[in-house]
Simulated scan of single mutants.
Amino acid sequence: MCTQEGSSANLSGTGVALRPLSPDDIPEMLEIERLGHSHPWTEGIFSDCFKPGYLLSGAWFGERLVGYAVVAYMFDEAHLLNICVHPDTRGLGVGRQLLCHVTETARSEDMSEVLLEVRLSNKVASKLYQKEGFEEIGRRPGYYPSASGREDARVMSLLLYP
């Protein structure tokens, strides 16, 4: 689970800091998205997320965006819609830091849970989510596009106030 140490805005020893994103950051987000996803979001999708009810957080190494998370708030649920880390900075804890930021922010906003979908084939992400306390609560058949058609999603939930 996210610890107090892991919740700081700076990743110890990496120089990475978290801060809110703005529409001006979309070009950098698109580049990371293209490098990280086989079927990336479009500029329009990102643009649509800069409105009330969404939280967009970036992980920055100096002035360089190295990762981001997009969350939609609905009623008492935070839905992690997209999280992506630049391939050059994977394995440094950036994804975990973003995930902890998402869960802690949702908790501070009195959300009851954080929901997400993850490709069944994405073992690295699934392992991270499980390590941080997320549990599989279902599957969405054919949820993601893939090279061979469609891929199922694992639906995962973290109860913030069990």
Rank of each mutant, 00 (worst) to 15 (best):
L160T: 00
G15H: 10
D48I: 00
T14S: 12
I45C: 08
S22I: 01
Y161H: 15
V124W: 10
I137K: 11
F46N: 02
Y161A: 14
L21T: 06
E136P: 05
M29C: 12
K131G: 11
N82K: 03
V118F: 02
A9I: 04
K123V: 13
T42Q: 09
Q130G: 07
G36W: 14
H101W: 15
S121N: 01
D76C: 00
I26H: 04
Q97E: 05
P20G: 11
N82V: 06
S47W: 11
T105R: 06
L30V: 08
E104S: 10
M29F: 03
Y129A: 11
P141M: 06
E113W: 00
T14I: 04
L92A: 09
P23Y: 08
K123A: 15
L158H: 01
T103C: 12
L81H: 02
E43S: 04
P162H: 03
D25A: 09
H39F: 15
M29I: 13
L80A: 05
E77M: 02
L120F: 09
G133K: 03
G142H: 15
L158Y: 00
L56E: 11
S126H: 08
H86Y: 14
D88V: 06
S7H: 13
S12Y: 14
V66G: 02
P23T: 15
H86W: 05
M1T: 04
K131Y: 12
G93W: 01
Q97C: 05
S12G: 10
L98N: 07
G93V: 09
A78S: 03
G58C: 06
G36A: 10
R96Y: 10
A106M: 08
G6T: 11
S57C: 14
N82Q: 09
A9R: 02
G58H: 00
E136G: 06
C84T: 05
E63I: 07
F61H: 15
I83S: 00
W60F: 09
H79I: 13
E132R: 06
S146F: 08
K127A: 15
T3Q: 04
L11G: 08
T14G: 07
S157E: 04
W60G: 09
H37P: 07
Y73P: 06
N82C: 12
A125M: 04
V85L: 05
L55Q: 15
L98H: 02
Q4K: 14
A17Q: 12
E136W: 08
M1P: 14
R150F: 03
D24W: 09
A153W: 04
P27L: 07
K127E: 13
V118G: 09
L35C: 08
K127N: 13
